[in-house]
Design a protein around this nucleic acid. Structure first.
Length: 611
RNA sequence: CGGGGUGUAGCGCAGCCUGGUAGCGCAACUGCUUUGGGAGCAGUGGGUCGGGAGUUCGAAUCUCUCCACCCCGACCA
């Protein structure tokens, strides 16, 4: 019936014998242990037809529906067999690349004594996010939300000489942060798995070097995940002066907006990105300024519509609290948004940054919110770069229901010294001078950070240098949210039918869907044979031998996102054909059966020669 | 922690206002039919109505209380 197929199988089998030593090596590599074939009837495929109501974002919904995870308490999840296969893929890629980059794997305790945390002062600082508990002797412990204290303690006990440096320890560990509000499934859970690495150095140069190695390792990791990502320059904020990059997986639903150059490697958090005015020059005033009545026109949109102007032509004046109880004004273009992080840093502005109260504005400036403008305003005023480039602009006249039109800087009021106080926008020039900014949303899944001496100082992690002097070491730390990567991968790759795993993260590479496996001997034989062949080829294969209707099987396999599907049916076998469909393909294709093994070999190992 | 909401079968929900035999769809189980895109028919099992207390002859329903979970804000890999 399908004799040619079996003959080909034999030919391939004999070739396989030739390569057997190689295959054996592949089979026994520990990191490829995942190559466990599986029959669906023996696997726990826990798919759900209905979308759980309390899952808001698509990755959370799909993870529950595909049976990857199950919730056990708020922000705490169990990983089911299918989900664990994906999780292990992520871990293994991370582990391999960390090893390649010279990292040494350790496993630190998740339950940590309070003494260590008291040494760095974080027992007090960390607040309720630190899950604390007491043992039977009433001694204090916490479940580690991060492991700086433990690793520094190990370091200071083990390391005495500069000759032992640098070192980079990493672990893949379950951590716990008692989030105020866990949500989005494993995207923001309380218990989560993280890869965290800590490096120790005699000096800044060495730290910088390892930082660059880790940056590269992270790039390799995210490349291997097959995810679209950006390394983003991060706010070094509270720790100050340190170098730091975040790795973001791009997804429309991401919580962070990131700005990156279309020409260069520049990428930064939108809040961080410098908003440059571009190289345009302000046009000369063309008309005289007039005061006009603008009743009921209070917002920029009202104003632009009422006067039939572009919002770019209107200037928006925002009033915030000053540091000495007064008020400070910010003038930006009508189509722009004020960036509080930038504004807060300016002299005279109160911290925390606070928009002024309606009443205070009225008493101190004499007009209501919707009618304020820079002309004749006698408080400290900052003007954004772009706003300073507008001529013949519209602005509030500092008198209720009145606006000025055709106002101009330098002529109708003082020439402003402009500053950067707005959010960067799509199309702005890139701050590094190359290309223009694009704005995308991302999910932060990795972070590389130069810690400096913060922890090593507090815990006296010193080594002897060349001169026999004690020297405090510099530290770097490098994290990847392993469980979050799984969610982020789904958030980036899904369609209306389910998950679209990249090959490197898929729980199975290939699913064999035999139609009527339990009724047709012909189909059963062919499917079993193919199943064996796939195992020989080292393909992570799932044979769906469940006695279900084809529609159910197809939709289940699409939901769980297996990237490649081969369908064997009686009809196909009789005409010596099999059907192949990639998860992202629109159409399936019918191919000759005798090419099947060859086809799969090429599909999963494109570099290998066909038999 | 503040604001809003929900707890009834594995999942999704109705019933509650107006107290009186606990229901529907999906899922599960059995049988027959069906078999290339979430089948049809017939039958079966499954509930301390989140826990406790109270009111009442009688509470899923009314009252009090505790608990869990979800959504919006500040926090973060």
């Amino acid at each position: 019936m399908c004799s040619r197929y079996f003959i080909m199988t034999l030919i391939v089998d004999s070739c396989f014998d030739y390569f057997r030593p190689l295959f054996n090596i592949i089979f026994f590599l520990p990191n490829l242990r995942l190559i466990k074939p599986m029959k669906a009837s023996r696997f726990h495929l826990a798919t759900l037809k209905e979308t759980p109501v309390d899952a808001e974002i698509v990755s959370h919904q799909l993870m529950l529906r595909a049976g990857l995870i199950r919730r056990i308490a708020s922000g705490i999840y169990s990983w089911m067999p299918l989900g664990l296969r994906v999780l292990r893929k992520v871990e293994n890629i991370v582990r391999e690349e960390m090893n390649n980059a010279g990292g040494l794997e350790v496993l630190l305790p998740s339950c940590q004594p309070a003494e260590l945390w008291q040494e760095t002062g974080r027992w007090e600082q960390f607040g309720p996010e630190l899950l604390r508990m007491k043992d039977r002797h009433q001694r204090d412990y916490c479940i580690g939300p991060t492991h700086e204290e433990v690793i520094v303690d190990i370091f200071r006990r083990e390391f005495k000489s500069y000759k032992q440096l640098p070192v980079n320890f990493y672990q893949i560990q379950t951590k716990f942060r008692d989030e105020i509000r866990p949500r989005f499934g494993v995207m923001r859970s309380r218990e989560f798995i993280m890869k965290d690495a800590y490096s120790f150095h005699l000096n800044q140069e060495s730290l910088q070097k390892t930082y660059e190695v880790m940056y590269q390792a992270y790039s390799n990791i995210f490349d291997r995940f097959g995810l679209s990502y950006r390394a983003v320059k991060a706010d070094s904020g509270s720790i100050g002066g340190s170098t730091s990059h975040e790795f973001h997986v791009l997804a429309d639903s991401g919580e962070d907006a990131i700005a990156f150059s279309d020409k260069s490697q520049y990428a930064a958090n939108v809040e961080m990105a410098e908003a440059l005015p571009g190289d345009q020059i302000r046009a000369e005033p063309s008309k005289d300024m007039e005061s006009i009545d603008t009743p009921n026109l209070h917002t920029i949109d009202d104003l632009a519509q009422g006067l039939k102007l572009d919002t770019k032509q209107c200037l928006k004046t925002l009033i915030v609290s000053g540091d000495k109880g007064g008020l400070v004004a910010f003038v930006i273009r009508g189509d722009h948004d004020l960036n509080p992080l930038k504004a807060e840093k300016l002299e005279g502005v109160a911290t925390p940054f606070l928009l002024a109260e309606r009443e205070q504005i009225k008493t101190m400036l004499g007009s209501d919110l919707g009618s304020i403008g820079p002309i004749g305003l006698n408080i400290l005023t900052y003007v954004d770069h772009s706003a300073a480039l507008v001529s013949d602009f519209v602005c509030g006249a500092n008198s209720n229901d009145k606006h000025y039109i055709n106002a101009n800087w330098g002529r109708d009021c003082d020439e402003p010294t402009s500053v950067d106080i707005r959010n960067a926008l799509d199309g702005d020039p890139s701050p590094d001078g190359e290309g223009h900014l694009k704005i995308l949303r991302g999910i932060e899944v990795g972070h590389v950070f130069q810690l400096g001496e913060k922890y090593s100082e507090a815990m006296q992690a010193t080594v002897l240098d060349e001169n026999g002097k004690n020297k405090v070491t510099s530290m770097g730390c490098y994290g990847i949210g392993i469980t979050r990567v799984v969610a982020a991968a789904i958030e980036q790759n899904n369609d209306e039918n389910g998950i679209l795993w990249p090959d490197s993260l898929a729980p199975f590479q290939l699913v064999i869907c035999p139609l009527n496996y339990n009724k047709s001997d012909m189909v059963k034989q062919a499917a079993d044979q193919l199943y064996l062949d796939c195992q020989k080829l080292g393909i992570e294969v799932l044979l769906d031998d469940r006695p279900l209707r084809p529609g159910v099987i197809f939709s289940d396999m699409e939901l769980i996102g297996i990237p490649h599907r081969v369908v064997l049916s009686e009809r196909g076998l009789k005409s010596e054909q099999f059907e192949y469909k990639g998860r992202r393909d629109n159409e399936s294709q019918d191919l000759p059966l005798y090419e099947l093994t060859d086809f799969l070999t090429k599909l999963f190992n494109p570099s290998s020669q066909s038999a």
